[in-house]
Amino acid sequence: MATEADPIEVPNSPDGWWIDLPPTDYQQAMDLQLAVVAAKTGGRLDADVILCLEHPRVFTLGRRGGRENLCVSDDFLARKGIRVMPTDRGGNITYHGPGQLVVYPIIHLSRRRLKVVEFVSALEQAMIRTAGHWNIAAGTDPLNRGVWLNGDKLGSIGITVRRGVSFHGLALNVNTEMAPFGWINPCGLQKVRMTSIAQHLETPVPMEEARRVMAGHLADCLGLTLTTMDAVALCEKIGHRIGAMPNIL
């Protein structure tokens, strides 16, 4: 396992927008991503867009499925108030919840002449550098994507590319509750433990700081100059119904 990743060399690109969202329902975030993708592929939006948020507790399935890696019953999940959502991202089952930093970079890869493998490596590097802000020496695993720490998984990646535009993205465990990961085989991997920055430090870290640090490193890794954009302004610009995003009002 590597403890340090090489910088990703990417061509210069137009400025991008960084959108900080409050805790956002998974389907609402998915609908917003699709609206941004449609605006970009339809030629109505040139800027790249990066959404940053936390989700309420939810299990999501990837294109490879994942219900076979769910280790608890539907009744158990109902009692815990956790939904299971199918998605079109790559990968298998994973968990999202409060304290997990979720970042959805909606990037026109083909216009930037950026290969998918290079893009995924850039997302891994951004997570590694963010963990390094707290002196945590995370790294990659040549056999499994994501970011790892002493054999435990710290961050996950699952993306989709539609007409050259990426969406979905990364999930870095900052202050994440670990128990729900024990109810699945994370990312379809058996006998894999998940960890978090807070678990390693034995103390929580401010999510606002984690967002700020991630924004800087992701901009560097992707060669973007990011400008903060108000979520309401983004929705108005792309014609996404504001009422579909009640939490941002």
Results as ranks from 00 to 15, higher is better:
residue 187 C to E: 01
residue 11 P to Y: 02
residue 66 G to S: 08
residue 95 Y to V: 02
residue 19 I to M: 01
residue 29 A to M: 08
residue 84 V to F: 03
residue 213 V to P: 09
residue 224 L to D: 07
residue 232 V to D: 13
residue 196 S to N: 08
residue 51 L to P: 07
residue 46 D to T: 09
residue 141 D to Y: 12
residue 210 A to D: 08
residue 197 I to R: 05
residue 225 T to H: 13
residue 206 P to W: 09
residue 33 Q to Y: 04
residue 99 G to Q: 06
residue 101 L to C: 00
residue 164 G to D: 05
residue 2 A to R: 13
residue 163 R to D: 13
residue 56 P to D: 10
residue 149 L to Y: 15
residue 63 R to E: 15
residue 53 L to I: 05
residue 35 A to I: 01
residue 205 V to E: 11
residue 116 V to H: 14
residue 12 N to T: 11
residue 65 G to I: 04
residue 96 H to F: 01
residue 76 F to P: 00
residue 110 S to L: 06
residue 236 E to S: 10
residue 214 M to W: 10
residue 143 L to R: 10
residue 141 D to H: 15
residue 161 V to S: 12
residue 5 A to E: 00
residue 101 L to M: 00
residue 19 I to T: 01
residue 167 F to I: 04
residue 225 T to R: 15
residue 243 G to Y: 10
residue 7 P to Q: 01
residue 134 W to Q: 05
residue 174 V to E: 04
residue 206 P to S: 14
residue 129 R to Y: 10
residue 232 V to H: 13
residue 184 I to A: 02
residue 136 I to F: 08
residue 130 T to R: 08
residue 117 V to W: 05
residue 30 M to Y: 14
residue 137 A to W: 00
residue 187 C to N: 03
residue 130 T to V: 09
residue 70 L to E: 05
residue 240 H to L: 13
residue 174 V to S: 04
residue 210 A to N: 08
residue 227 T to L: 14
residue 49 V to R: 13
residue 184 I to R: 02
residue 27 Q to R: 09
